[in-house]
Write a protein that binds this DNA or RNA. Structure first.
Lengths: 230, 230
DNA sequence: CCGTGTGAATGCATTCACAGCG
DNA sequence: CGCTGTGAATGCATTCACACGG
């Protein structure tokens, strides 16, 4: 599940706080989910908790890291060192959570040679060479949308089978290649939708809403956390 | 739905390519979804397509932008101008898709006064002043995790009801406040999981898999696009 | 007695298949 | 004749409630 990494982060926090054990209630609160959901997720791992006590934090961390394949530190190639690429190259969260940025690449010759965070930017056409040196597991695309598809093709060509795409476009990839997309503007637009909905609701407190101006109320928006604690 | 922004982006692309009309088949391909899903989504909008022809691109753009509340350009406050914050401050995608960065804020006094992309960084304690000047719709948190909750509280205090959180932590907010979270490391970990799964599958081609080393195969990972076209 | 693990129930999203309109 | 809009069917995630183990 996509929630395992969230549990993992919460568990690391708990471990640092000195907790050796945690209940489903406690962990679910720290991860921002329902406790029943957490128990079901963990049961899918075949994981062992102790009834009457809870889960062993260290053991659970080990289990989840194994399932996520984090026992080995995976090499990441980052393509596109513009605005966003720069930030990603300097982002500590990658290194601290099991990943190693193995190469920075860009198509712009004027950017090649620049040093960022101890790594020298290479030309994207060097990708085959880079792949030969390192065992690349994941490619991150932080280029403009117009270049993204070509970069994806190049990544696939050198054997990368997992891509994180920050460019606002859909990528075509062969079967067996996984693509995850992060579009910052889309996140804002989803929030905008909620703002709009909230605004129209408070504007028409008593009215049932005319058919013309009525907004569809029952929209499901994945992943939105609303009203946790106070 | 969370897919509407994706449709919107695809529609804008189509409009620029000179298309005046598009079939559900065509649009769904451009947005990377099933055509039946797209039709159902659009029918929830009460939107009008023409049978035998398709959807009017311009009209559909208008409809979706209305539902998403993009008819007004919303003001965004960005808190935390570190690595990621810098990148976000310079990201064109915000401006070009209906948002305006109204203020840059940081808790670090040494960062206050710095000018980024035509905006001067102000201290986060000035938030009430900023909120008085501008009608803030959305707050973006790009601070370290340790500071995120406090920033969220400050945003909520000045009336912000939508938050985009880049810090790797769960935020507690009162009811009525929407939070969306983007955790870049989590995205990589999900890809890592897929890598791990793929690796174990190809490593044990014939075996059914022993009970001990078996990986749970049937995990659902939201939002992953796999194998679109070739 | 507390808390895990899990069957059962519920609700929702996705998909299929096709009726009906332009 | 093509394509939309939609009932029906399917499958999955979430939630509830509780039996059972430490």
């Amino acid at each position: 599940m996509a929630r395992l990494p969230e549990y993992l982060r919460a568990l690391h926090n708990l471990a640092e706080s000195g907790h050796e054990t945690v209940s489903s209630e406690g962990l679910s609160a720290a991860a921002g989910v329902n406790s029943a959901k957490l128990r079901k997720d963990l049961s899918h791992l075949g994981s062992y908790g102790t009834r009457g006590v809870g889960y062993d934090v260290a053991l659970l961390i080990e289990q989840i890291e194994f399932v996520l394949g984090l026992t080995q530190r995976r090499a990441v190639a980052l393509v596109g060192v513009g605005n966003l690429g720069h930030a990603l190259a300097g982002y500590d969260g990658f290194a601290s959570r099991g990943f190693r940025i193995a190469a920075l690449l860009d198509a712009d010759p004027s950017r090649v040679g620049e040093e960022i965070n101890g790594l020298v930017v290479r030309h994207v056409d060097d990708l085959p060479t880079v792949a030969a040196e390192e065992s690349l597991a994941i490619g991150v695309i932080a280029t403009p949308a117009a270049a993204a598809q070509q970069v994806a093709d190049q990544l696939v060509a050198v054997g990368v089978t997992s891509i994180l795409n920050f460019a606002p476009c859909v990528l075509s990839v062969p079967e067996g290649v996984d693509v995850r997309k992060v579009d910052l503007a889309i996140e804002l637009q989803i929030l905008s939708f909620h703002e709009h909905r909230k605004a129209s609701l408070t504007a028409l407190p008593a009215t049932g809403g005319s058919a013309l101006t009525a907004l569809p109320g029952g929209f499901a928006t994945t992943d939105t956390q609303e009203a946790i604690g106070t």
